[in-house]
Simulated assay, not measured.
Amino acid sequence: MLFPHVETKRTALRPAHSSDGPTVYETLQKAGIATLPERAAFEREHAGNLAAQFFVEQRGQVVGLTSLRDLDQAGRHIRAEILTDAGRGRMGLGAEVTLMTVNYAFAMWNVRKVYFWTTDAEARNFTGPPQLVRKEATLPGHAVENGELTDVHVFAIYREDWEEYGTKLLTRLVHGRKAANGEGR
């Protein structure tokens, strides 16, 4: 049985609700997230079919947002979206948030896969163990970025791969290397 971890030694996922004060968009703007779309597009996209949404925090500061949406219980899949401060990507923030988000989805719902849509520019940065992350499709000219049509790439992590490989990576982040190897606990 999976536990829905929402905290590692350096990063925490905190529930994000617009009723908590500033809107999600304003909070992300203040955090300096540079990859935000225009406000109207963000609000339109982020209001629908939301299953879970979290602010990403490090040292008490918001550095991003992660959400799970479009839960399809018949098809047993859910879409993950992750927005983080691009400057922190070199420090592994995106990977850490992805691991917690995917694990949360598998722990909370009986889904067979968690999928991600990403644009051409981001696809080069979307990495993970080859046995964990599968590229499923490319949708040519499906999105507009900086006023130009761009491809959208669809990646997925399947439950069986997550249980075999992903849980070990997350356990290492949450409890340390010894716990991931079955030592000391």
Rank of each mutant, 00 (worst) to 15 (best):
A52P: 11
D161P: 02
N110F: 07
D20G: 11
T167V: 15
I33D: 11
A180V: 04
E160M: 06
R14Y: 08
T118L: 09
T150W: 02
V102N: 01
A34S: 13
G64P: 00
P22D: 13
A143F: 07
Y115A: 04
R172A: 13
A86V: 12
A156V: 05
T23A: 15
M100I: 04
A86S: 13
L68W: 06
R185Y: 09
Q61S: 05
I82K: 02
A137S: 12
R10E: 11
G87I: 07
Q73M: 11
E57W: 03
K168S: 03
T119N: 15
T167H: 09
P4V: 01
K178R: 12
I82V: 14
R124L: 11
A31C: 07
Q29A: 06
H46Y: 13
A34I: 05
A123E: 04
P15T: 11
F106P: 08
G21W: 11
A80H: 01
H142I: 00
G60P: 04
H17L: 13
I157D: 03
K135T: 10
T118K: 05
V6D: 03
D20T: 12
A16L: 05
R124K: 14
G60I: 04
V62A: 07
K9W: 10
D120S: 15
Y104P: 02
G75D: 13
Y165V: 15
G147K: 04
M1H: 10
V144Y: 10
V24I: 15
R185W: 08
W162E: 08
R185L: 08
Q131M: 07
T118R: 02
K113V: 01
L93D: 06
A143M: 08
L50P: 04
A51S: 15
D72Q: 14
S18F: 00
D120Q: 14
G21M: 11
L132D: 08
A95L: 12
T66K: 04
V133Y: 05
L50R: 15
T167L: 11
N110M: 04
K113T: 03
A47Q: 09
L36C: 09
A34G: 02
H46S: 13
W109S: 13
A12K: 15
V111F: 08
L139Y: 13
H142A: 15
V133H: 03
R14D: 00
R79L: 11
A143E: 07
R112T: 10
V111H: 14
A74S: 14
P129D: 05
Y165M: 01
P130Q: 06
R76C: 12
H46G: 11
A41K: 11
E26N: 05
H77M: 05
D70W: 07
E136Q: 09
E183W: 02
A156I: 03
I33M: 09
E164R: 14
G92R: 12
M108C: 14
L71M: 06
I82L: 06
R14C: 10
A31G: 02
H142V: 00
G94Q: 09
H175D: 13
A121E: 12
R59L: 06
A41G: 10
A34V: 10
L173P: 01
R69N: 12
N49T: 08
M108V: 14
L170S: 10
E96H: 12
A179T: 00
A123K: 04
F3G: 01
T98M: 15
R177S: 09
R39H: 08
L50W: 07
T11E: 10
G32V: 06
D20Q: 14
E81T: 13
N146D: 12
V174R: 00
G48Y: 07
R39L: 05
A105L: 03
V63K: 04
T84L: 05
